[in-house]
Amino acid sequence: MMKFLKIFFVAAFVSLAMIACKSEAKKEEAQEQKTETLAEANPQELSLNISGMTCEIGCARKISSDLSKKEGVLEANVVFNDSIATIKYDANKTNKADLIAFVEGIGSGDMYKASETTKKADEKSCDADCKKECCTKTEAEKKACKEDCTMACCAETKKA
């Protein structure tokens, strides 16, 4: 009985080792293919204004998830509050018109409208009717230092 258990455990160990080696080889092969694909890629970036989103989880995440799975898309970021999607894609595999059509086809097909914009998801800007102090300042006023500021950038400005 003891010999049988030893033989069984040795056979199980050898089997597991072989399976683990095969899966590790597959991972390495997939990584090599991904590296080759990125080297051959023609990366481009597209910002889309998306109307029709009603929530962050159901809409923005769904669009981001679907875009991430689309062939040729390297990265997709959808910001619900700004209604902006920033998409990095391989121009060898897809194009702007295809990505816009893809976004508009998500859901029931008439739920979202997408159009190209120059604003990116991480850029902040003021609305035309914004009356907040930060929005009404000119660029020079925004960069001006306060009298009691002790930051290095202000110290250099005061010396000049």
Rank of each mutant, 00 (worst) to 15 (best):
F9K: 03
F80T: 08
I63D: 01
L67N: 00
S64G: 09
K96G: 05
I87K: 01
C59W: 09
N77I: 07
K96D: 09
A39D: 13
A20M: 11
A76I: 08
F80G: 07
T35E: 11
K34G: 10
L99A: 08
R61K: 14
S64K: 10
L5R: 08
M18T: 11
F80H: 01
K70H: 07
C59K: 03
A41S: 07
K96P: 10
A85K: 07
E75N: 10
D90F: 00
K88A: 11
E24Y: 15
A30Q: 00
L67W: 01
I7N: 04
C21V: 13
M18Y: 14
D90Y: 00
S83W: 05
A60M: 01
Y89K: 03
A60V: 03
A25Y: 12
A25I: 00
A60Q: 02
F9M: 04
A11R: 05
K93F: 02
K34E: 14
I63M: 00
T54Q: 01
M2A: 13
N92Q: 00
V10N: 03
F9Q: 02
E40C: 04
K26H: 10
K62L: 14
I87H: 05
E36L: 15
A17S: 11
F102H: 09
N92Y: 04
D66E: 12
V10L: 10
Q33P: 02
A30C: 04
L99C: 00
S15D: 12
K3D: 07
E56M: 10
A76W: 07
L16V: 04
A91E: 01
E56C: 12
L16A: 11
N95G: 06
S51H: 11
I100T: 03
S65Y: 15
V78M: 06
V73R: 06
I7K: 02
I100P: 01
A101Y: 08
K34V: 07
L46Y: 00
F8L: 04
A97V: 11
Q33I: 07
L5K: 10
F9V: 06
F9G: 02
Y89E: 01
V79C: 07
T37E: 14
M2K: 15
S15C: 10
F13T: 12
S15P: 09
A41R: 01
I87L: 08
E24D: 14
T54P: 10
K26P: 10
S65H: 15
L38C: 09
K62I: 09
E45S: 15
E56K: 13
N95A: 06
A11C: 01
K3E: 05
N49H: 15
N95H: 08
N77L: 14
E56N: 11
K3C: 11
L67H: 02
V78K: 03
E36R: 14
E28Y: 12
Q31T: 09
N95M: 02
K93D: 09
C21L: 13
P43A: 06
V79W: 12
A17L: 13
R61G: 12
I100M: 08
V78A: 08
F80K: 05
A30R: 01
F4Y: 14
L38W: 06
K34M: 15
N92A: 10
T35A: 13
A39I: 09
N77A: 13
F102I: 02
